[in-house]
Design a protein around this nucleic acid. Sequence first.
DNA 1: ATTACTGTACTATGTGCTTAATACATTAGG
DNA 2: CCTAATGTATTAAGCACATAGTACAGTAAT
Lengths: 131, 131
Amino acid sequence: MEFDTSSPIWLQLVTEFSRRIVTGEWGQGQRIPGVRELALRLGVNPNTVQRALGEMERDGLCRSERTSGRFVTDDSQRISTLRRALVTEAADDYIRVSRGLRMEVSDAVALIDERWNHHDMADLDRARTEA
Amino acid sequence: MEFDTSSPIWLQLVTEFSRRIVTGEWGQGQRIPGVRELALRLGVNPNTVQRALGEMERDGLCRSERTSGRFVTDDSQRISTLRRALVTEAADDYIRVSRGLRMEVSDAVALIDERWNHHDMADLDRARTEA
DNA sequence: ATTACTGTACTATGTGCTTAATACATTAGG
DNA sequence: CCTAATGTATTAAGCACATAGTACAGTAAT
């Protein structure tokens, strides 16, 4: 995975892990890979993964059983709350920038519509390149 | 001004100063306040402002005349390019998150429409509090 | 009991960000 | 000429982040 140098890696990991929980990639109640394995696959230090998962545990998104591993929370409401939080945060960020640039709602919305397909093409390009 | 601890202040300053140029708050060709004055008003160190403006100068957004001060670029095309870059970057960020969360375009667009008014109310609240 | 795996804790090192405090060169204004 | 203001450069200190390496405690499987 690729990381941005302009924000702490452990924070980017919190975002990525949260995304995995919301999408079901890490299913409700399922076991999460160990910190060492995750660190190896992500190309970061185990301590950095530990930091990220520690924060998420503080928020009740997962729990650790000291010897058998870490598990996604069983509370489905917590997961849907997380989903709503992630989505609205992203939307508000976009709105904040758009309004700061003195845009109109209609233009802001039109731009999303327009760029959404660009991302489709980017996905196709990536698939073609990796094939 | 308030700053986020999760990314370098000089980077947040680049964003803020860019916004001021795009909105005309800092007009094309106009003089920019000195690093010491900006630092004082923003509550940061002059070196941090210097770092931010140095980066923007590298991108041709402003120029410095060694003794009389710094000035916004005269190139209006550069400013409109900057505007486009800031807007599309924000839109793409939102799209990336939304798609990562497996949302549909229609939902992503609807959310912008919905939250836009919430921001209106937040503005009204702030105006009322400051009055 | 032994082995292997889990989370957790700790030290040490290097790097970048931020602040503080100077110092210098240049030029506009008086 | 002299003063004030400009951008610029430098050094030192403190802090958070990331990495590496090591170690400990608890449990499941053998």
